[in-house]
Write a protein that binds this DNA or RNA. Structure first.
Lengths: 332, 332
DNA sequence: ATTGGCCATGGAAACGTTTACATGGTACCT
DNA sequence: AGGTACCATGTAAACGTTTCCATGGCCAAT
């Protein structure tokens, strides 16, 4: 590999000058800069990222830390988010290093160590529960963080998400407007803030219509298709007055759809079902799912953009709400 | 950050001994090793990846180079593959750095430069066409490569894929066994070896049944749902004798399904449709797609495993065929 | 004409590792 | 007892950058 030394020799200057010229420092004569640029190009020189990071004590790499990256996922959330992160990162010459935190994958090190070892410029965290073992240490550390779908409880870190409460309220209001009065809600997991936000939206809509809140209408699906299926399979026959189920995720809505089919309950005639996320399968479900669309690519892009702003010390808001869309299909 | 120096001071030894102890060199007394390990743990020491890579001239990072990572993909191939790569990489303490090559994303540098700058231990390449601008340079370079779904034309590099020709033959034989004699084939793009392999399998099956090959039955879908839709929309009405279409990808099969629906052609009664890949949507299509299942997570895992073997100089075969499964659903 | 200041460039340190080589002690062999 | 060989440990160089500080030339001001 050709190093800065080779360029220096070739251009008959010192390595210091080469470094300055290549990094756009002002104090280099135009003539020498040109000579250096020419030499660099001729020798096909590309700076060694590690040497640079070592001296700068900071790499030009974003960490993308995700929880729940596992085989056979029924959605492309990670991929879609990655596209957005990648798009922004590549526009500013940054790379993306992956880290998956998975309970059944015993890593020898935590993502905190991971971030430090590679002197990451910043990390984007997605899908993590706030009760995670290392969460506190990470966001209290010295490495800039942007959280996707997690609340930022410190002004030092960023947070990006859609307005989950508003979206959930919107969806519930849609059901209410169509005459539904006994609407069950399938929650995800309590440790995920999006889940509680969506519950809040659901409750707010009921309240707006002056409806009493029935705790027995809150079902627990753990963001899992199977758990939702099980929960609803017992619940629906026992509560025939329920005419609609609003699910905090499409995956759970799919489970509800499956249960309804097995119970011979017609969707949407006898039961309206609404999901959340608009994963790929939502449009292909039978019937196609009415749901809240969130654009994970946008979410990723905005997260990366915010991260870069934080790194650059820009004084920008550290919370960003990305628009969502309510999509009416056939299920409710 | 605590460095090796801190550990050395704390354990009252030189940094060289610390390095040796931590890297499991044999020539360290058990007593000092223990003392060093204790010191490292107490100080929460983690070696700086960049400093290490710099002196070793090789990082412990795999590059994952993909073509066609874009917003709104209708499949999770990248994500699924990533899971497999990640699983193996993390088991050996390696990380994954992403690189997307995309025509509409003008990167300032090529993936060859990318790999060199980061002194990647190796790269896994997926989705690339062999006529790519940098392909030759990359696989002829000094960085170990494993290709997914690309033929390895050199013994220095690895290649992982399913047996595309056999799978395509299997699918075509299935149609033939069900009485179909006029079977059209929807190809992907000629520059993708999987596409030509699948063509070969299709032709081999026809040949086995002693059927003449009709060039007009070869449709061009460019691996695109819309292109397949367009191609078949003209073709089907003009060729009523055709009773089956075998597509080199599920996405194209989806396009065919859509066209058939619009042409009021019943699938599978009037037209059998078979796809390839078994993407998530295949099972949810209407009717559910009969297709060839390939496990991208396995593919990724095997690619990473092979890459590591190559790096370690293991003398293993540089071509690996991962099992596929033919899945009969409702479409053909 | 001398001095002061600015500016382009160079020298060298520093970043945190690994590792080749040097060193000194201990145990074994003759 | 003297020498030798081995083994644990230390010293220092090297990896390729960036950047602080030094240097020297040139121009302008007195």
């Amino acid at each position: 590999m050709t190093s800065i030394k080779d360029v220096a020799n070739h251009a008959k200057v010192s390595i210091a000058t080469v470094s300055r010229a290549l990094n756009g420092a002002s104090n280099v004569t135009e003539a020498t800069r040109k000579r250096i640029l020419a030499a660099a190009k001729e020798l096909n020189y590309h700076p060694n990222a590690m040497a640079r990071s070592l001296v700068e004590k900071k790499s030009r790499i974003f960490g993308y830390i995700i929880s729940g990256l596992k085989k056979g996922a029924k959605h492309c959330i990670v991929q879609d988010t990655l596209v957005g992160i990648y798009e922004y990162a590549s526009s500013i010459g940054y790379e993306i290093l992956m880290f998956a935190v998975d309970s059944n994958l015993q890593r020898s090190k935590s993502y905190v160590d991971f971030a430090n070892e590679h002197a990451l410029a910043g990390v984007i965290i997605q899908g993590l529960r706030t009760d995670d073992q290392y969460y506190r240490e990470m966001i209290d550390g010295r490495i800039p963080c942007v959280l996707i779908d997690l609340p930022a409880d410190s002004s030092r870190i960023g947070s990006v998400s859609i307005d989950n409460a508003a979206a959930a309220k919107e969806a519930t209001l849609h059901l209410l407007a169509h005459g539904h009065r006994n609407i069950a809600f399938m929650t995800g997991v309590d440790e995920a803030s999006v889940s509680t936000e969506r519950s809040l939206g659901y409750l707010a809509a009921l309240q707006q219509f002056g409806l009493a809140i029935k705790p027995e209408y809150l079902l627990h699906g753990n963001f899992s298709e199977d758990d939702a299926y099980t929960a609803v399979k017992d619940f629906l026959p026992a509560s025939p007055e329920v005419s609609a189920v609003f699910c905090a995720s499409d995956l759970m809505a799919l489970g509800v759809l499956r249960a309804a089919k097995e119970l011979n309950i017609k969707v949407p005639q006898e039961l309206a079902v609404i999901g959340f996320d608009d994963i790929l399968l939502a449009a292909y479900a039978d019937p196609p799912l009415t749901t809240v669309h969130q654009d994970f690519t946008d979410l990723g892009f905005e997260a990366a953009r915010m991260l870069y702003n934080i790194i650059k010390g820009q004084d920008v808001p550290h919370t960003r709400t990305v628009p969502h869309t309510f999509i009416v299909r056939k299920s409710g």
